[in-house]
Structures are given as structure tokens and as C-alpha cells.
Design a binder for these strands. Structure first.
Lengths: 204, 204
DNA sequence: ACGCACCGAGCAAGCGATTGGGCAACCAGG
DNA sequence: CCTGGTTGCCCAATCGCTTGCTCGGTGCGT
């Protein structure tokens, strides 16, 4: 008497289901994906752990939805940033602001990538992670190179190294928000970073 | 002569023991502290899990040694950096280079702090973590403020925000080295960051 | 009467930790 | 050379507990 339902229940969009993802994401953001147990997720929702499996077929599928939704948003924003800008500096600025905006809505996904990257990226199911990260890198590097060619940026800039420095400096602050009180707004962070980027910290 | 064996075997420096810490550290760096099991550590060493307890009295004590050794190195480097420099810019530069150098030797400790900060910082045993992090922050902020006062750095610089950005941007790259082939040397990272810091990316 | 959302109980696997004992290499005194 | 004790290192086994997950059943709204 095997249930022959249409393979995955993952596709059904339910109110309750979305709420559960939200709750799970909050826990993932605080403790990491692997360190969070299904029982803790269930407790937060006020149900028993087994009941989660009415909505999801595994713990991983919850993580899957959170991560893929995040990367979709990031890439959409980046593509728009590049398309809408006229020069390299404008593109970089749009990318930065788009990132800060997107990251604000996906704290959980970022924490999961930070904490459990090795876990996810090793699994075939999450192969899209590597693919998305490559497009993100390509976008940054292309705009930095473009700026070098047009003389807008320093010619001796190492585009790939600069990308890594910039991406991390941009992604990490989202992480802070959770704990300490001394929170900065995403606009503050964007402005601070852009200022640092274009002017450095040295007095004029 | 104070070698009265504090009833802890933790003090005995053995060849084998150091090797085990090395192996455990590699695993912690890849998977995080909590996610790594004592059985995996033992497997990597070619022994059974119980045999580890001949060398260490707990899994935590392994982490303890790795973390405290790391923080000792960091703080030693920072104190020397501040003492040996004449102005704020020189101090920041020395701090950056000292960090890059120290972090290179303590990948495992850094990964543990990134992944399991909440776990460690909650325990009384690891209270020294918070203390050390406070000294690290104080060192950075003091030098940034000093630079503002002497007019070397922009007066509108948010010292604490800048510290967070800089520390993270500096600490994270150590993380990459593990996987990808396109690794940068710690000098490259230092130079790239310092250049970014002082000059920004804009062409002169 | 039907199905959704959930309960209640439990499974196999794996977890960290600990104990007791075995094995080889050493060093002393005979 | 032999002996007996000590020490360093490890195995085998197990305890109490947590993990992700399963599955038959139940209350309830429609």
C-alpha cells in the first residue's frame, strides 16, 4: 500500500509550511544547520518532531528551500545591477546595495553557508550552490576588470582577490545582527563599505 | 620544579599527543568542532575512540589547547605590533601582517571560532575567549582612534564598525585556503587589504 | 466520509565518555 | 643473563543519551 503521491510534497505551497521554514531558518541562523535538531524546530513550532515530516520529507529539504531561495534572489539582484548600470563604478555600487538588501532578508541562508558550507557543497543535491557561487564571482570580477580597462579603478588591482575581500566584507556583517545590540543598519554598512572601497580610510 | 603534575595529563608534552592535536585540528577546520566526533579523530589516527582518552581527558580539552594556543599567538603579535610602531598607520599595518601570519598557522582554531563560537563562549571553561576577543577589539579600536586624532585617518570613521569589517575581512580568507587551488599567500592578502584600506580601489 | 495536520511511541544508528585489561618496551637489582 | 616492576599506548566493550526519521492512529473541519 505504497503511497503513489506525485513524488515530492515539496512543491505544495502552504501557509503553515512557509511558517515552519521561517522558524527553522531562525534556528539555523543561530546555531547552524547541522547543529539544529528537528526536535528543536518542532518545539519552536509547538508540535512534535515527527509531525514535521508531514510537511517535509527530510531535514535537508528544508535547508534546500532556504538556500535556493536565497541564491535566486542574489543572482536576480546582481543581473539587474549589471544591466541597469552604465559604468563599472555604478555597477559595483548597485551590486553592493543589492547585496545588503538581499542579505537582510536571508540571514538564515547566509549563516548556513558560513557554518556548513563543507557539508552542503559536498552533496550532489546541493550542486547548484557551487554553480551559483561561480556566477556571483564572475559578476564581481567582470565589473572590476571593466573598471580597470576604462581607467576607473587602479590598474594593478587583483580582481579575484579584491572580489573575495569585498564579498566577505559585505556578507559577514549580516551575521552580526543576530546578537549584539550595537547593530548597524544595512544602509550604514553599505555606505561604510562603499566609502572604504572608493576612498580608503586615509584622510584626504 | 613546579612539575608536580597537576593531576591533569594535559600538561605532558608528547610527540604522539601533538600529532593527535594536529589531526583533530584538521578535522575541526573542515567540519567544525561540534560536528566532528571523537571516533573520526581516532579513525584519522588509526586508533579506537577510547584510546584518545589516554592522551586527553575530554574532547573539549583538545579544543581548549588549540584555541588557547591560537589566542596566545594573536595577542602576542598584537602587543608587539603596537609596541613597535610609531604612528597609527604603522600599527594597523603591523597588526594586519601579524594577523595574516598567525592565522596561517591556526586554521583550525579560526574555523572553530567561526563555527562554534556560541558553543564555546557559553561555557565557563572558555571564558578566556571573550576576554581575548575584547583585547583584540580594544587594540584595533585604539589604533583607529589614534589615527583619527592625529589626522592620519578620516575623522568620520566609525572605529568599531571599521574594526569589525577589517577583522572579519582579514580572518575569513584563512578559511578559503583549504579548498580551492587558487590560493593567495598571506602576504598577498595583507598587501591587497592594506592597499584597499589606505587607497581604496579608485584610480588616482 | 474524507483528508489534513498532528500525536504518541518508537526504531536503528550514532554520539561522547569511561572502564578494565593487554601488550610491548624499558630499567633496576640479582 | 634473567627477573619483576613500571610506564606508554592501545583495544574491547559498554553505558546513557540524542540523532533523523517512521508509522499507525486520532481529532477536527469540511
Amino acid at each position: 500500500m505504497t503511497r503513489v503521491t506525485t513524488s515530492k510534497k515539496a512543491a505544495l505551497p502552504s501557509e503553515r509550511r512557509a511558517h515552519l521554514i521561517q522558524l527553522a531558518g531562525d534556528l539555523f541562523a543561530e546555531k547552524g544547520f547541522r547543529a539544529t535538531t528537528v526536535r528543536e524546530i518542532a518545539d519552536a513550532a509547538g508540535i512534535l518532531s515527527g509531525s514535521l515530516y508531514h510537511h517535509f520529507d527530510s531535514k535537508e529539504s528544508i535547508g534546500d528551500e532556504i538556500l535556493s531561495a536565497f541564491l535566486d534572489d542574489v543572482l536576480t539582484g546582481y543581473r539587474a545591477a549589471v544591466a541597469d548600470s552604465e559604468d563599472a563604478r555604478g555597477a559595483i555600487e548597485r551590486i553592493v546595495r543589492s547585496s545588503a538588501e538581499t542579505l537582510k532578508r536571508h540571514r538564515a541562508a547566509l549563516a548556513m553557508l558560513e557554518n556548513d558550507w563543507n557539508y552542503f557543497s559536498g552533496q550532489p543535491r546541493f550542486a547548484y550552490l557551487r554553480k551559483a557561487m561561480k556566477e556571483i564571482e564572475r559578476t564581481w570580477v567582470q565589473q572590476l576588470e571593466r573598471g580597470k580597462e576604462t581607467g576607473q579603478f587602479r590598474a594593478d588591482l587583483d580582481a579575484r582577490l579584491t572580489y573575495r575581500l569585498l564579498r566577505d566584507i559585505l556578507w559577514i556583517p549580516t551575521f552580526w545582527r543576530q546578537g549584539r545590540g550595537a547593530g548597524w543598519s544595512s544602509d550604514q554598512i553599505s555606505d561604510g563599505l562603499l566609502r572604504l572601497l572608493f576612498d580608503g580610510i586615509t584622510a584626504p
